[in-house]
């Protein structure tokens, strides 16, 4: 039980897929122009991640190692297509906004990374919990980036006016450079917080080496 809790929590901060492992950068940089887009993309990715990790963990023993990547891709692509169809049917407005970034979840290396590094080796429950934590991590990450860029670029969050009307908005935050600025600053702040936390911990005790994250690159 203790172990499962650790598997869940790691995706939220210590091994946050976007801010700590820095994977899945393409959708992260491209779609986080508004909080709504970030949230929708995060939830879609989380759905695909949770479903595909669970299924891959279930069938890992019957998949021959030589064809494991094609097998994973088929399973992932199936859930992406399901997510795409469901969005088109039940949330057509959001589907229009996210457009081609939904099919692109197939090649998001967070998902293939978790399948290869985790779900293909661990029991089903662990894989599910791991994917759930990572999924929530992606969702808060994308929503935060989208919210911040929307706030700086248009003065709104979730299309609600936050800054007083008439405040100069920095349009650059909605453009590609803004994505890099926001991501870089966030990663820097998170590293600094971790640094301080670690410093305090080593002062109290001098055990527990930090976990090393598995990395993959898109």
């Amino acid at each position: 039980m203790r172990n499962l809790r650790k598997e869940f929590v790691k995706g939220l901060w210590n091994e946050h897929p976007i801010f700590r492992l820095l994977i899945g950068m393409c959708p992260t940089l491209a779609i986080t122009t508004a909080a709504t887009n970030g949230l929708a993309m995060g939830l879609s990715t989380a759905f695909v991640l949770i479903c595909s990790s669970t299924i891959i963990s279930l069938v890992k023993n019957i998949i021959p190692p030589k064809v494991r990547i094609p097998c994973y891709i088929i399973i992932i692509a199936t859930f992406v297509t399901i997510a795409d169809l469901l969005l088109a049917a039940y949330l057509p407005d959001l589907h229009t906004v996210l457009g081609l970034f939904i099919p692109l979840i197939v090649v998001n290396c967070i998902i293939l990374g978790r399948a290869e590094a985790y779900a293909s080796k661990m029991p089903v429950l662990d894989s599910f919990v791991d994917a759930l934590g990572m999924g929530i991590g992606i969702t808060w990450g994308l929503t935060f980036l989208g919210g911040f860029r929307e706030l700086m670029g248009m003065g709104t969050i979730f299309s609600q006016q936050i800054l007083p009307a008439g405040t100069t908005s920095w349009g650059i935050f909605l453009l590609p450079p803004g994505a890099f600025f926001t991501l870089g600053i966030t990663v820097g702040v998170m590293n600094q917080i971790n640094h301080i936390l670690e410093h305090r911990r080593t002062e109290r005790t001098s055990v527990e080496p930090t976990m090393a994250g598995q990395t993959a690159e898109s």
Partner: peptide
């Protein structure tokens, strides 16, 4: 074995997608 497993997974995937597509395509 490689062919059978990959073929099996692709077939199941195709079946699931056909079902979902048929269910939601009138709504779309």
């Amino acid at each position: 074995k490689l062919i059978v497993v990959l073929g099996l997974i692709a077939t199941i995937s195709g079946g699931v997608l056909a079902y979902v597509h048929q269910t939601v395509s009138p709504i779309i």
